[in-house]
Computed example of a mutant assay.
Amino acid sequence: MSVELIRAFLLKSKASKRQTFLNDLFKSMDKDHSRKIDYHEFKQGLFHLGLTDLTEAEIRKLFSDFDTKKDGKIDYTEFVTALRPQLPQIRLKAIDEAFRKLDVNNDGVLSIEDFRIVYIEQAKKHPKCLDGTWTIEQALRSFLDAFDTPGKADGIVTMEEFHNYYAIISATIPDDSYFVFLMNSCFNS
């Protein structure tokens, strides 16, 4: 069994159509809430998914494929990177263009400062700002956190995190042209 086969198995799942599926799956496997999945948690997670006919050798190989840092644990980035669908070049180009458009200060990451410039008007119109529940800064942080690694939001969004976010969305849109159209519409590219 390979990572590609598990990815295909998961993409067939109705639950995988939700944007938060990989986050939910990671959390369900991380039984000790350490934000890392050890071998035992990984094995139990595969069984819970219904992958009960895997041999011990296949499970160990899969774990090794996911554990790219080779530290005996799978962190969220390793997990999502292994399972996110491979993006066609046309989609990667659209995602990269959107990232560059948001990275106003050209430092290679998205931060609250970038979002303050790009999204200030949208933040002012956010329903929670309009009713006084949130400040504009809280609305901007909410926008930024949508792209940040779930459970590990640090206020900085890397290109990898941005790719992970859009790879999951991409899996729900079968047509490349439509995906590019949506990205261009969202980011005025």
Rank of each mutant, 00 (worst) to 15 (best):
E113M: 12
R91P: 09
L87E: 04
T81E: 11
K125H: 12
I112R: 12
K73Q: 09
R84E: 13
A98C: 05
V80W: 01
I74T: 04
Y119V: 05
N105M: 02
A123D: 01
K70W: 02
L130I: 15
D75Q: 01
D107L: 00
K93N: 13
K93G: 01
D103Q: 03
D65P: 12
Y119W: 12
T81Y: 09
N106T: 12
P85N: 07
R116W: 01
K101N: 03
F79R: 07
P88K: 14
D114G: 01
R100L: 14
E78A: 05
L87D: 07
A98I: 01
F115L: 14
E121S: 14
G108I: 04
F79V: 07
D103A: 05
I117L: 10
H126A: 13
F99W: 03
F115G: 01
P127H: 08
Q89L: 14
A82K: 07
Y119T: 08
V109W: 04
F66Q: 10
T81R: 11
I112N: 02
S64G: 06
T81G: 05
T133D: 00
Q86D: 07
K128N: 15
F66P: 03
F63H: 06
S64E: 13
L87A: 06
A123Q: 02
D107K: 05
K69C: 11
R84L: 15
K101A: 07
D131T: 09
D65E: 15
L102H: 00
P88M: 12
D71C: 14
E121F: 12
G132E: 02
F63I: 10
N105Q: 03
Q89H: 14
F63C: 10
Q86P: 05
T77Q: 10
K73W: 04
G108K: 08
L87V: 09
A94K: 05
L92G: 02
E113V: 09
K124M: 14
G72K: 05
P127Y: 07
D96N: 09
V80D: 00
G132S: 05
V118T: 10
D71Y: 10
A94Y: 02
D67L: 05
D71L: 04
V109T: 05
P85V: 13
N105K: 13
T133Y: 01
N106D: 08
K70E: 14
V104G: 00
C129I: 15
R91Y: 04
E97F: 08
D131V: 05
I74C: 06
D67R: 08
P88Q: 11
L110G: 02
K101R: 11
Y76D: 05
P127F: 13
E97T: 07
I117N: 06
L110S: 00
C129T: 15
L92W: 00
F66I: 11
A123M: 11
E121V: 15
D114A: 04
D96I: 12
C129N: 15
R116Y: 02
E121I: 10
G108E: 00
